[in-house]
Design a protein around this nucleic acid. Structure first.
Ligand SMILES: [Mn+2]
Ligand SMILES: [Mn+2]
Ligand SMILES: [Zn+2]
Ligand SMILES: [Zn+2]
Lengths: 139, 139
DNA sequence: AAAATAATGATATTAATTTTCAATTTCCTT
DNA sequence: AAGGAAATTGAAAATTAATATCATTATTTT
């Protein structure tokens, strides 16, 4: 982890209240605590946050993930589940097992460059990108 | 256009009622009629369909796009708009202008192959993929 | 043609997210 | 430090895309 959410907030002028700090912590720790491919939805975040401070409302969780997302701190995913799922914005891609729902994260420099090249070709500067691969395990 | 929705339905065992046929037609014509980057949501489809047959209900539009999607005829997009948007499933990608919302469609063989290669590297057979590039126009 | 099956339209329901609003906390200005 | 403005919060209501229900209509099957 290169930069903490707190630092990113400071840099982006996002004020950190007690509630936001706790929510930030839960998100930061979600990978370490719950495994590599953890992409919690708001309900799940609310559950985890509640264990730290049971008075935090789900409205605040919704407000905070939105705030963090708009500040570029979090990435919101709309996988097929219907609920939005969140994680730290660290520029990786996802390979999703359509049988099990397992999510594998990957980074590929070649893809990154190719995407930049394509945007460039159409006269655009690439500022964000989303790549999801759906596959079935080969036996 | 290589294959009509009607043909795809027949091939996939999807029955075409009058209502479905009209909805299929509206979707097929959405590009020609409304320009290159047309990705209508259900409300918009309902509006267009209603001009042809005002008795078709929005429930039927919802049911039909779901049916077509499950048959692999349509692709459902969850862009940032909140509403799902639909178009013919023809395996292209999107470059979205984050200032104007304009959607540019593109196909890139190199990206296609690279994606297959990555899935393969993780032991998966690629069955679907979604790539969205977000950019700002260079001046 | 009669019975069974499927699809439709209208409406109710669900569920995620947003909004409202009064209360509390934080931030300014003096 | 005090007082008032501004921002944030919790609880609850509102919104809204999408789905489910159900009586009616259309299509198949016998
Ligand atoms: Mn990247
Ligand atoms: Mn492809
Ligand atoms: Zn991830
Ligand atoms: Zn498209």
């Amino acid at each position: 982890m290169l930069e903490t959410i707190e630092e990113k907030c400071q840099k982006n002028g996002v004020k950190l209240t007690d509630q936001r700090r706790i929510i930030a912590r839960v998100i930061s720790e979600s990978k370490k605590t719950y495994g590599e491919s953890d992409h919690p939805d708001v309900d799940e975040l609310y559950n985890r946050v509640s264990q730290i401070d049971s008075k935090i409302s789900i409205a605040t969780v919704y407000r905070t993930v939105k705030l963090f997302e708009e500040a570029g701190i979090l990435t919101k995913h709309d996988f097929k589940s219907g609920k939005a799922r969140y994680e730290l914005n660290d520029d990786h891609n996802h390979l999703i097992d359509i049988k099990t729902g397992e999510i594998i994260e990957f980074v590929d420099q070649e893809i990154e460059e190719l995407q930049k090249k394509i945007a460039d070709k159409y006269g655009y500067k690439l500022v964000d990108h989303k790549l999801e691969l759906y596959g079935i395990k080969k036996k």
